[in-house]
Nucleic acid binder design. Structure first.
Lengths: 102, 102
DNA sequence: TGAATACATCAAAAAAATTTGATATAAAAT
DNA sequence: ATTTTATATCAAATTTTTTTGATGTATTCA
């Protein structure tokens, strides 16, 4: 396993990642993306029972720390869980919450 | 590995744990506790270059989610990293930041 | 072309977290 | 028995995050 070098930005960097995880709506969002795969914003609005602007706000926070990825297809914007980053951050046990097969 | 049951409190519960991790000062604090073992508040004040009341505030947040433990010895209050909880939440890779041997 | 749909972003308001300085309490030292 | 030390906690001020409603920009559809 690669050792993480600690410098003055390390803690800031990970604090940002954990900030993204520090909200129950966003955890639920990750969980839904996990079980559904690629989902567009308008579908997510219904699933999450959130207004579109609120949802976009939370999606951006997750996107900024690479917990999800974005793919534009015509009029739609699809979001998907980034399993790599989830695995990088969370324990295998916790990854279950955001991993299809568990 | 035990599967985590998802109910209406699951996300709130973990969001709280991640909130505690969502601050670079607290991550540095965990890292210091990791390398130093049991440390009392007054020593931590110097190590972290923080006022006592500020430090106590952050210690409480970590204590409330079991990321650290507390032990009172006479006049002093010693805090220590709770490796179990760290392991429960974070990836093995990330645990290195808060694990002595890595 | 004009209307409708999907989405991002902005600014203001509201809510939550953090910092600061003061005060309280218990144990130890004098 | 006072004073000092170590620490928690409180209230107010500050900062950050989140929510809300409005607006802007593509893209598709009629």
């Amino acid at each position: 396993m690669k050792t993480i070098a600690v410098n003055e930005y390390t803690f800031e960097h990970y604090a940002n990642a954990f900030k993204a995880l520090a909200d129950s709506k966003r955890l639920k969002l990750l969980n839904e993306l996990c079980s559904r795969g690629q989902v567009c914003v308008c579908d997510l609005c219904e699933i999450m029972e959130m207004t579109q602007s609120k949802l976009s706000y939370h999606l951006k926070i997750l996107l900024d720390v690479d917990l999800i990825t974005q793919e534009k297809k015509g009029k739609w914007n699809y979001y998907e869980l980034n399993q790599m980053q989830v695995n990088h951050l969370l324990s295998p046990e916790l990854c279950c919450l955001f991993r299809p097969t568990c």
